Simulated scan of single mutants.
Amino acid sequence: MLLTALLILGITILVFVFLYFVPVNLWITAQFSGVKTGLLELVFMRVRRVPPSIVVNSLITATKAGLAIKDDIESTARVLQAPDLETHYLAGGNVPQVITALISAEKANIELTFKQATAIDLAGRDVFEAVTMSVTPKVINTPNVAAVAADGIQLIAKARVTVRANISQLVGGAGEETILARVGEGIVSSIGSSRTHKEVLENPDKISKLVLGRGLDAGTAYEILSIDIADIDIGKNIGAILQTDQAEADLKVAEAKAEERRAMAVAAEQEMIAKAQEARAKVILAEAEVPKAMAGAFKDGNLGILDYYKFQNIQADTEMRESIADNKPKSTGKSNKGN
């Protein structure tokens, strides 16, 4: 009994292992769906760690939809093969999404080759969404864009950009951020070139025409269909603010220069006072030498007493004249007449 149970268990395990590596049910489904694939080929897929169900189900979907793929634009259409999908899966692609995108593109008469679809998918983009955007354009709302007209008035604009996916540029093409940046740059340039803000408010479509005519979608994954100005608001008077700031700056510069001149004048005045005091000190020193010189002259006999009295009389007369001229009473020395 034990041997029989072990035998049954072993047979069951072998059956499960066989059915895992040899997906008979999947092969039968493929045959009835018109997909020509060998049972041994499914086994090799399992060995290569490729889920046979993904490949077979995708082939069934493509076959039922009548999908014929092209490797490139100029090549002839051919039937999709299992190795094509297996290679894409091993490269890390999303096989069912690629098949869905190819079927949608064919039904919408959009030129999309198998090579393009797999490249878009491997680049990290949603290939089915790209096909959907080619059929149904997408509207992108720009953030508020502030710009200043030539008269100094700030305008805040908001635009709606209608784009359609450019299949040929999806790999390596710039995304929505680039579109928004270029549109914002165009709005700023258009408003800045207007003489007055009233011109912009009267003709907002002028902005759309100027921006749309610049070919902003070059090098991007999208094709711009239209640019519509949704809203324009008046902001600050930037010109007046700048003039006020400039006037305040000029005033501060003038005050600084005036303070500099005042400081220089004070310094010059102090310098002159110092020089005057220095000169006065020299005079005092010179006057202090006079008595010494007179004493030396008396001692050497070069100056007599009569000469000294004459000197005193001259000094007294000089002080008297200065007192009369200044109307100030001054003490005068004694006037002595020599005999």
Rank of each mutant, 00 (worst) to 15 (best):
R262D: 11
R182A: 03
G92K: 12
A249R: 10
E289P: 00
E177K: 14
I224Y: 10
N141P: 03
I156G: 04
L2M: 07
G301A: 07
T29A: 14
K275G: 06
V171Q: 05
K292Q: 08
F114Y: 15
L216R: 11
I224T: 08
V98I: 06
G215M: 13
A149C: 08
A5N: 09
L2F: 01
A265V: 09
Y309Q: 15
E259K: 15
N25M: 12
P51L: 09
G34Y: 05
L216F: 11
R49Y: 01
P52W: 06
K282I: 11
A295Y: 13
V127N: 05
M45D: 12
T178M: 04
T76A: 10
L180A: 01
H197Q: 08
F311M: 15
I60W: 02
Q243C: 00
D72K: 04
K138H: 07
A68E: 05
M294L: 15
P329E: 04
E177R: 14
A101I: 02
V131M: 03
V15N: 03
N144F: 06
A65Y: 03
A316T: 15
I305A: 13
M294C: 08
G186M: 10
P51D: 06
E106F: 03
A267K: 15
I99P: 05
R78F: 00
D326I: 01
R46K: 14
V253M: 08
S226A: 15
P52K: 05
T178L: 03
P291V: 05
R49Q: 07
G304K: 08
M320H: 12
V47N: 02
S194R: 14
L122W: 03
V15K: 01
A325T: 06
I13Y: 08
I103Y: 03
T132G: 05
T178Y: 02
I110S: 02
L210R: 03
V290K: 14
F44L: 14
K107M: 00
Q243D: 09
L212A: 15
P96E: 04
E255L: 07
H197K: 08
Q312D: 02
L39D: 07
